[in-house]
Simulated scan of single mutants.
Amino acid sequence: MAVAERRGGLRLIARLHRWLGLAAAIIWMLQAATGVLLAFHFEADDALLSTERVPTDFDAIQQHMSGLDNAGGEAGTIWVWTTAGLPDRYVVLYRAPDGDERTAKIDGAGRVLRDAAADDYTFLGLMREIHLTLLSGNVGHWILGIAGLLLFTNILFGLYMAWPRSGHWRRALVPVNSAGPSARSYSWHRAVGLWGAIPAAVSILVGSLMVFEHQIGDAIGVEEITLPANPARGAPVGLDLAARAAVDAIPGSRFVGTTMPSVDDASYYAWVRGPGELYRGGYGGSLVIVDANDGSVRGAWPGTEAAPARALMGSLYPLHTGEAAGTLGRILVMLTGVWLIVMAIVGVQLWQRRRAARRAR
């Protein structure tokens, strides 16, 4: 009786695994393909503009931003951030005099390498938007989150079905080529699946959780870090002083980016990457709020000292992209995307062959 029940349960799991996979295969393959392209897209985008490295000069960058601020009309800078690609590269989001938002990619001396409308994407930038939202805003964002959770459960179903008995691991991990077409496809599907299921499940799960990070953060008590508005008392201190103050507030850190002060709140909300953080690329998880009136530090929140709930949410991006493990981790995530494409193709091929075999009976 127990054996019959177990077989019935396995058949149900197999049907769920098959039909869930077929239903969402297109979205999963699109996510996998764009994910492979995005593994090193920040560096690629920067290199396509220029490979010359110009050391960061915040005074020069400030001069460029002052020119944007003084262009008249509704002009003004909104934030400046590292591109997360090549060293000493930055992207500035600003409003043009007509109120339209634009982005300027600049080198360390403030020289403009590319200036375009904020929604004018490069090819890799377009791939990133597809990967994040399917070019459908919040609706696409939610579709991808749900599809990601579906993929995660489907991987668990597949792993459960493919898990070999004791003493059969070598046979399961090495595909056979001497059997018939269906058996050969199954052998490859099982072997490739066992090799990559665990890293894929981790990357896909944390990527899906990122879609719901605000809802999850609210549920586990992660509050946004803010301070009371700090009215301006004159012209704000420059980016150079603010960036230095932010880096000095957390010894050993590197500047990542900052929002710009306003008349209502003369504060730089500056992010830096501190020692020991999971971030290895161009981003960081430590916040420093700098008073734009005098350059003093209003508060500092190192990422490595965050409460467990905040640390959990802050770990999602570096785990999903693999940068928590450096370049090797990013390569592993890229290979995970290739793995998912192969699994989808072999899985559909296996389904077609089995379906044809049943019809031929």
Rank of each mutant, 00 (worst) to 15 (best):
S262G: 14
N230M: 08
A232S: 14
G72M: 10
R6D: 02
A84C: 09
G285H: 02
L16S: 12
Y317S: 09
A117R: 15
G217P: 10
I27L: 15
G35I: 03
A200F: 06
A84T: 07
V342H: 01
Y186F: 12
I345S: 01
A219N: 08
G108H: 03
A292V: 05
T304N: 12
L205V: 02
D264L: 13
I78Q: 10
G299S: 04
S203V: 14
D69T: 08
A47L: 11
R330H: 12
L209P: 12
Q352Y: 07
G21R: 07
S315W: 08
L16E: 11
M313D: 08
G137D: 06
P308R: 05
E5C: 06
L173Y: 07
W79I: 00
A183I: 09
A23E: 02
F152T: 10
A309Q: 11
E74A: 13
D218M: 05
S50L: 07
I61W: 00
A200M: 10
A246T: 08
K105C: 02
D265M: 12
A162Y: 11
S286H: 04
R359W: 10
Y269K: 14
L340S: 03
E74K: 12
N230D: 00
W81D: 15
L49T: 00
S208W: 10
V91T: 11
I198Y: 06
A201L: 07
I204C: 01
L113I: 11
G207M: 09
N154E: 10
T82K: 08
R114T: 06
R233V: 14
G238R: 02
H214C: 00
L312E: 00
T56N: 01
P164M: 02
S187K: 04
V36K: 00
M29W: 00
D248R: 13
Y160I: 15
I26M: 07
I26A: 15
G125V: 09
Q31F: 06
G252R: 07
G180N: 14
Y94M: 04
A243W: 03
P164G: 06
A75W: 08
A32V: 13
A23Y: 03
D119N: 15
A307V: 13
